[in-house]
């Protein structure tokens, strides 16, 4: 027996653009992505969250995408508590792994950085979102060649259909070689636009 699944909200960030629920929230052509993420933090986050600046770029991207998405949807504290977060990308944490490798590459300048090492895992961004929103729900991080709606949604549906949660934040979060891209969508078994793989892929393509 399968329950109906809905898309409740979505948010996407690229190097120059942030889109949320069909609306372009901001667009910048001249900033590099690091500055762009910082400007999103300054302009769209209602809370002061100094920890943001300690995060690696991938975690910043995940944090902001979740922040803006959750701000633009309605969710009770209880729903947030059980929110499942299922993210994916191709490079895992290689962008930060390379930074860490640089800190240990040279025998004569060997100073491994704990603050970088802690971010050399792709799921740390999920942890940052959980801390921010007090979410104790299901987590998983998948590595796929490209955005794979089928994998994410099949997995999300197993959580929704077995009542492990009513809301799953799914998506893609990639930072590598000077480029960032994220696409998060909130699947729910209670309300929103009817979900289909075609539907979600169309939204993804349109960004």
């Amino acid at each position: 027996m399968k329950n109906t699944v809905y898309i409740k909200a979505y948010c996407a960030i690229t190097n120059t653009k942030m889109v949320c629920n069909d609306e372009v929230l901001c667009e910048e052509n001249e900033l590099d992505y690091k500055s762009f993420l910082k400007s999103i933090y300054k302009n769209y986050c209602e809370v002061s969250y100094p920890k943001f600046f300690k995060m690696d770029e991938a975690s910043k991207l995940a944090f902001l995408t979740a922040e803006v998405l959750l701000k633009n949807t309605s969710m009770t504290e209880n729903e947030k508590e059980d929110l499942a977060i299922i993210l994916s990308n191709k490079s895992a944490s290689l962008n930060t792994d390379r930074d860490y490798q640089n800190s240990i590459q040279d025998k004569n300048n060997f100073y491994p950085s704990p603050a970088i090492f802690v971010y050399t895992l792709p799921n740390i961004g999920i942890g940052e979102i959980c801390i921010r929103h007090k979410s104790y729900g299901e987590n998983a991080f998948y590595i796929t060649e490209k955005f794979d709606a089928n994998l994410l949604s099949t997995y999300a549906q197993t959580l929704l259909n077995t009542n492990k949660t009513n809301n799953v934040l799914c998506g893609w979060v990639e930072v590598e070689k000077g480029k960032c891209s994220s696409f998060f969508y909130l699947l729910s078994n209670t309300e929103g636009e009817l979900y289909s793989e075609k539907n979600i892929n169309e939204i993804y393509q349109s960004i």
Partner: peptide, 26 residues
């Protein structure tokens, strides 16, 4: 292949993931 990389729970999470995909009849 489905690749799971979730820090130090990866190995046991993979078992849970397998169970769920089997129950979803994939």
């Amino acid at each position: 292949p489905i690749i799971v990389s979730n820090a130090c729970v990866s190995g046991v999470l993979a078992i849970a993931v397998a169970k769920r995909f089997l129950q979803a009849k994939k």
